[in-house]
């Protein structure tokens, strides 16, 4: 067979190559024009002072130096983003697995429950964020009214307090767990029954079956959710932006609105990047921020992938 390929006429090879190229051309064009070109442009802009209003002026590493040494908002946004990833991603995974497990229990009506649990994830992010701000309003929101009713005299300020605003976003994320839940549900249903039966024969109790059968079999899904969660966490924008604006008392966008109200607690990396680029017109600085974000995201992703070799189990393939 290999010999036949080697003997393939050169002309035929070229034609085959061109056919492949033709079929791939939409993606290649899209990649070159919509991804590679903007990325390289932004890399260049990151070394310039560029306001979009004037020609970019080369300033070397000044944007990066300013970012790391003189911009307190950069570090505030970075800390907030790391917090939401460190707290939100594990909670989403735990809650996603728990919800998926619940959905494996009903003997009838499973599809209805799945639909009901999945529905929140289909809500538009802005609408969901605004609804949450309303529901969690510290004065007249139903959540705090219930909390007061059961004896909590001083319930959290939620989106209106710097210590509780990010928890509000975490709860919003857990409410829309549907997308992660579906993946975990597929993973749970994919665990071979005979593994549980073998574990039972060995005398494993429920907790041990979960620890030594379910978790290893789910590990590829957990790994996938972790990587996606971290990447999305670094890009968190819509819900936080809408909730911050709503909590600041107005849905009117204003360049002078306090950054990440309340008290900067909802200033996330992507929000600050947007604010710098499109409200303060510092596109060069925003480009530098985007590249720092890219590098950080890459480092985190590669670290998780490298670390996954020790804990991710692939069926039939052992630990890779």
């Amino acid at each position: 067979m290999a010999g036949e390929i080697q003997r393939r006429p050169r002309k035929r090879n070229v034609k085959h190559g061109l056919t492949v190229l033709l079929f791939m051309s939409p993606w290649i064009l899209g990649f070159l024009l919509l991804i590679l070109y903007p990325m390289l442009s932004s890399l260049y802009f990151s070394f310039t002072k560029y306001s979009l209003l004037e020609q970019p002026v080369w300033i070397g590493l000044e944007n990066y130096t300013f970012m790391f040494t003189k911009d307190p908002f950069f570090w505030l946004a970075f800390r907030n983003t790391v917090w939401i990833i460190a707290v939100g991603v594990p909670l989403r995974i735990v809650f996603g697995i728990f919800t998926a497990w619940l959905l494996t229990l009903p003997r009838s009506g499973g599809r209805t429950y799945r639909t009901l649990y999945f529905l929140p994830s289909m809500a538009p992010p802005v609408a969901a964020a605004l609804a949450f701000v309303l529901i969690f309003n510290p004065e007249y929101g139903p959540v705090n009214q219930i909390l007061r009713g059961i004896g909590f005299n001083d319930p959290p300020l939620w989106f209106y307090g710097p210590n509780s605003s990010k928890w509000g976003l975490v709860l919003l994320g857990l409410w829309g767990i549907g997308d992660a839940m579906i993946i975990f549900l597929a993973g749970l249903l994919d665990v071979p029954r005979q593994l549980y039966e073998a574990a039972e024969i060995e005398g494993a109790n429920g907790r041990q079956k979960f620890r030594f059968v379910t978790l290893p079999m789910l590990s590829p899904v957990i790994f996938f959710s972790t990587v996606i969660g971290v990447i999305y966490g670094f890009q968190l924008f819509t819900q936080a932006y809408a909730a911050s604006l709503a909590a600041s008392g107005s849905t009117v966008t204003d360049a002078a609105a306090n950054l990440g109200d309340p008290q900067g607690s909802m200033l996330f990396y992507a929000i600050y990047l947007y604010q710098q680029g499109f409200q303060d017109f510092r596109m060069g600085y925003a480009s530098a921020m985007a590249w720092v974000l890219f590098v950080i995201t890459m480092i985190c992703t590669v670290t998780i992938i490298k670390g996954s070799r020790r804990w991710v189990h692939y069926q039939g393939g052992g630990f890779r």
């Binding site: 307190p72 908002f73 360049a255 002078a256 306090n258 950054l259 109200d261 309340p262 008290q263 900067g264 409200q279 303060d280 017109f281």
Partner: peptide, 14 residues
């Protein structure tokens, strides 16, 4: 610097 001055002072004020 656009609204940066207001944002900085507001950050302190809050």
């Amino acid at each position: 610097i656009g609204a940066s001055d207001q944002n900085i002072l507001a950050s302190f004020a809050t």
